[in-house]
Amino acid sequence: MDFSNNSENSSFGSSNDTKVLNNMLAREILKRQALENKVTTLERQIQALVTDVAATKTTYMTLQHATEGVSLRQNNMAASLQTITQRVDSENDNIKQRLRYLSNITSKLQTSGVPTPQASVAFLARVTTDNPTQHGPTVSFEMTDFNLGNGYFPSWGYSCHL
């Protein structure tokens, strides 16, 4: 039996095994580096998403605050408009009362036989649309609240000479 060949075979086999193991180790190292690169890329993407979420939250909160401000301003404007409307309605009622009072006084004066220096004419008429009917200098109103001295004729309108 020749032992020298055995040791040659054994060293040759050992050398091949080492090469195979080194190749396997190199492949595993490359796989590990590829995985580490993927992990690094995913970590960057996650960080970018976290930053985007934080920016989105900030934008959302800013918009929510702005919306609350707009709602508050709308409520304030609605309350102001309601107050103004109440004042206008109240003033219109006062004017109607004064005109009725004047009409009563005029009627009493006319029925009592006391001569009046001049016939009084006053009317309160209004339109309920944005575009009143107008033909030349004549304007036709849609509602007549008061017509002292019958100076306004709804069928004719009111003619004003400017």
Rank of each mutant, 00 (worst) to 15 (best):
N5E: 14
N5W: 10
N6D: 12
N9R: 09
S10K: 07
S11K: 09
S11P: 00
S14K: 09
S14F: 09
S15D: 15
K19F: 08
V20I: 09
L21W: 07
N22I: 13
N23H: 04
N23E: 15
L25M: 13
L25C: 03
R27K: 07
I29P: 00
L30S: 15
R32M: 09
Q33T: 13
Q33V: 11
L35N: 13
L35V: 14
N37F: 04
R44K: 12
A48R: 13
A48M: 06
T51D: 11
T51I: 05
D52S: 10
V53K: 08
A54N: 14
A54P: 00
A54R: 12
A55F: 03
T56P: 00
T56E: 08
T58V: 14
Y60W: 06
M61R: 07
H65D: 15
A66S: 07
A66E: 15
G69K: 14
G69H: 13
V70Y: 15
S71W: 05
L72C: 03
N75E: 15
N75M: 10
N76A: 05
M77L: 15
M77T: 14
T83G: 04
Q86W: 02
R87N: 14
R87G: 04
V88Q: 07
S90P: 02
S90T: 14
S90N: 12
E91S: 12
N92D: 11
N92C: 03
D93S: 08
N94R: 08
I95S: 00
I95V: 15
Q97W: 12
R98F: 09
L99H: 01
L99T: 03
R100F: 08
N104Q: 13
T106E: 00
T106C: 00
K108D: 14
Q110I: 07
T111P: 01
T111V: 03
S112A: 10
S112K: 02
P115E: 11
T116H: 02
P117Y: 10
Q118M: 07
Q118D: 03
Q118W: 00
A119E: 10
A119N: 14
A119F: 05
S120T: 04
V121N: 00
F123E: 00
A125M: 05
R126Q: 05
T128V: 12
T128R: 05
N131R: 11
Q134S: 08
Q134F: 01
H135W: 05
H135A: 13
H135K: 11
H135D: 13
G136I: 02
P137W: 02
T138L: 03
S140A: 11
S140K: 04
F141P: 01
F141M: 14
F146L: 13
N147H: 02
G149D: 01
G151F: 00
Y152S: 00
F153N: 11
W156V: 08
G157Q: 02
Y158M: 04
Y158K: 01
S159W: 03
C160K: 06
C160Y: 07
C160T: 05
H161N: 15
H161W: 12
